[in-house]
Amino acid sequence: MSEFQPDKTMLRHYLQNKLSPDDETQLELWLADHPEALADLELDLLMQVGVGTSENHEFNVEPQVNIMSKFLNGIAYVLAAIFMSQLIFGKYFVNDSLTFIDLDNMRGAENIMSYQINPDQDLILRFGVLTDDIYQMTVNNPEKNKSFQFFNLRPNERLDIIVKLSSNQVETGLWEVSVTGNTNTRQIIYELEIRSE
């Protein structure tokens, strides 16, 4: 028979989860033989949980997850927020000085994609390519007889091509963006409707 006998401090630390795993095991096995002490601790536990909820810190019924999972969940939430913002705001990002348009979002779309921009903002166009080729891009607005050409566009390490149009180049209206590779000359065409805020 074990001579183990917890004192008040140990019981208090047990309630507050401050015992070592070995001490906790020893105490819990001791409780199996001491129903009176168990009954007292049951009441303490009830109060502990009840007081916790009374502090407006409602106990979360969802299982706890480790820090890495929380971190990954956090990233997932951020990505989800970005995705939702793209859906809601027309698949472009806006900050104080520029508007970002991801042309890849238009692939497979039947309709012309419409973007609302601030006339004072520069426009960043991004599109992904499949090979490390040299590309050229034409941004054309037939209605307003405006056209800009960009040559020798080399994709970055993520096979993205990024082109910047300054605010004085961008006007509202229907724009056609065509991209052609030097090796693969198949032309990819995007249609953009730019509207003013």
């Binding site: 536990l45 949980v49 106990f59």
Partner: peptide, 13 residues
């Protein structure tokens, strides 16, 4: 006894 241990260890579930 066991229910007490489980309630204490997994209070938030």
């Amino acid at each position: 006894w066991l229910l007490f241990i489980v309630r204490k260890k997994f209070a938030r579930v």
